[in-house]
Computed example of a mutant assay.
Amino acid sequence: MKNESFTALVSAFSRAYHAEHNQIKIFDDSLARQLLTKEEYEGIASSMSQGIAFFQPEFAGTQEQALRRVVDHQLSPSPLGRAAFAEQALEVSAMHGARQYLIFAAGYDTFAYRQPEWAAKLQIFEIDHPATADDKRRRVSALNPTKPSNLHYISFDFNEQDLQKRLLDCRAFDPGVISFCSLLGITYYLSKDVFKHFLATITKLLPGGSSIVFDYPDEHTFTPSAKERTQKQVMMAARAGEPMQACYSYEELERMLEDVNLLIYQHFTPDQITGQLFKAYNDSQPAHPIRAFDNVNYCLAVKR
């Protein structure tokens, strides 16, 4: 990946669009819009509205209606739902002693720049591929050159570099401190062996009580039984040059986590995500409901 992640840019767009167009929000990323240039925002909006025939061939309506349909139906559910799930879990973890927040594949995540008062006790580490990380820092510095004092950057290639060494080389990182790790949007793009090794490295490095939150595609993702949205998402990722590589059954995931000394603490299926995380928004917007993405589950695991 020589350039910044396209899927990360689209995720930022979807969070920005949701924040700007709704009073009651699934997840409020108030800064996402500022990370995108006017040309990028309008370009992604135009591309997505023009792509309505791919997403929903039966649709009839205006370009703006088409854009909202694509965003609500295809783009927003995962970025909004998993961010809400992760940050709710992070707050609980911080209340119970977590003092480090490791954001792997941080992309254009804005938590460090809109962090609430309870996050002041956390040291925040944004960990990402150098191309995306450098682009993110460039965009943020253009808005606000003052970096939060508790924020640290670590460049890391998930397929090539030694994670333990990269973390320990960062002076601010303390392997003896209970930590909360976010791995959102990662499992799709790593082989099962690489992901398991990645989890094992994290759990060996951090103390008991540390948590890992992630989303993952279920065992039907690459089969004909996958839902239509899922099939199109797989196609989109491949076309963007970021093909999905792995999917998991709950039983397989549970065994993998146990092998690396992790226990599942919380697990949401699509129906549970819609019912618990999207309810307030859906009640406020009956004409524009959002359902959690098909074939994607959320998991919070804790080291024994």
Score class of each variant (00 low, 15 high):
L262W: 14
I202Y: 13
H21A: 07
S211L: 15
N159H: 11
A66D: 01
Q88S: 15
Y113F: 15
F293P: 02
I103L: 15
V70P: 09
E219T: 04
L206M: 15
F54M: 03
T7D: 06
D283H: 12
A142S: 11
Q34G: 00
L31A: 03
F293S: 14
T7K: 05
Y189I: 06
E117F: 10
K279A: 14
Q34F: 14
L151N: 00
R69C: 09
N261S: 14
A237H: 09
N282L: 11
Y250V: 10
E4A: 14
G209L: 11
M244V: 04
F156K: 00
P217W: 08
R138I: 02
R139G: 00
L184C: 11
Y17D: 04
D215A: 04
Y113P: 01
Y153W: 15
D294L: 04
L143D: 03
F180I: 01
E160W: 02
S211T: 10
S49F: 11
G97L: 09
I103D: 02
S225N: 10
F195M: 13
H73R: 10
F278V: 01
S47Q: 10
I52K: 03
L183I: 12
L67T: 06
E4R: 07
Y216H: 13
F6R: 10
R229C: 07
L36Q: 00
E42R: 12
P270D: 10
L35G: 00
R229W: 07
A53S: 09
K227C: 09
Q34A: 11
Y108H: 01
D109W: 07
Q56H: 07
K165E: 14
D109M: 06
A16P: 05
F85G: 01
L168A: 05
D169M: 12
T110I: 06
G241M: 08
Q100P: 09
F198Y: 15
L122I: 01
A19H: 15
E126Q: 12
G43L: 07
M236N: 08
